[in-house]
Simulated scan of single mutants.
Amino acid sequence: MKFALLLFDPENYWDSVSEEEMGAALAEHAAFAQYLQKQGIAFSGEALKPAKEARSLRPSDRGPVSADGPFVTLRQDLAGFYLIECADLDEAEEIARHCPLGAGIEIRPVWDAPS
């Protein structure tokens, strides 16, 4: 099964950190990637730009309408994600416990759409 580890940080967090703090955070993620590799866990992941740089499409009676910002107002930014493969939600949670925590991690199963 695939699981998305959705990583959240406090709103505007990365605008306020020093280069040293940024380097330390990147080192934590590098260590987590190394952990995944050593455990033989298939994964991918990316960092995301802040929500203030996002755009969303929202439904309207005229069709999709473009709007600046995230679809849902949050006090945290979705900062990045890892996509991992493992047996079940319990294993995904155990793996996520090794990931840098930030403001929190949501562990969400990926829907395997029928072909």
Rank of each mutant, 00 (worst) to 15 (best):
A4S: 14
A4K: 09
L7M: 13
D9R: 09
P10K: 07
P10V: 06
E11H: 10
E11S: 07
N12R: 11
Y13R: 03
W14F: 13
D15H: 06
S18T: 08
S18Y: 02
M22C: 02
G23T: 11
A24I: 04
A25R: 05
L26H: 02
A27T: 01
E28R: 03
A30V: 01
A30N: 05
L36G: 04
L36D: 03
L36V: 04
Q37P: 00
K38R: 04
I41M: 05
F43N: 00
S44N: 08
A47T: 12
P50Y: 03
P50A: 08
A51M: 04
A51S: 08
A54H: 10
R55Y: 12
R55Q: 15
R55T: 13
L57Q: 14
L57C: 14
L57H: 11
R58V: 15
P59M: 15
P59W: 10
P59C: 14
S60Q: 09
D61H: 12
G63C: 14
G63E: 14
P64D: 13
P64Q: 13
V65C: 13
S66R: 13
A67P: 02
D68Q: 14
D68G: 12
D68H: 13
G69S: 12
P70E: 12
F71N: 08
F71C: 10
V72Y: 09
T73W: 01
R75V: 03
R75N: 10
D77F: 00
D77C: 04
D77I: 05
L78D: 06
L78G: 09
A79V: 06
F81K: 04
Y82Q: 13
L83K: 06
C86M: 09
C86D: 07
C86V: 11
C86A: 09
D88M: 06
D88F: 02
L89E: 05
E91L: 03
E91W: 00
A96Y: 04
P100K: 07
L101Q: 11
L101T: 06
I105A: 07
V110F: 09
W111H: 15
W111S: 15
D112T: 14
D112K: 12
D112A: 15
A113R: 13
A113V: 15
A113P: 00
P114G: 13
S115A: 15
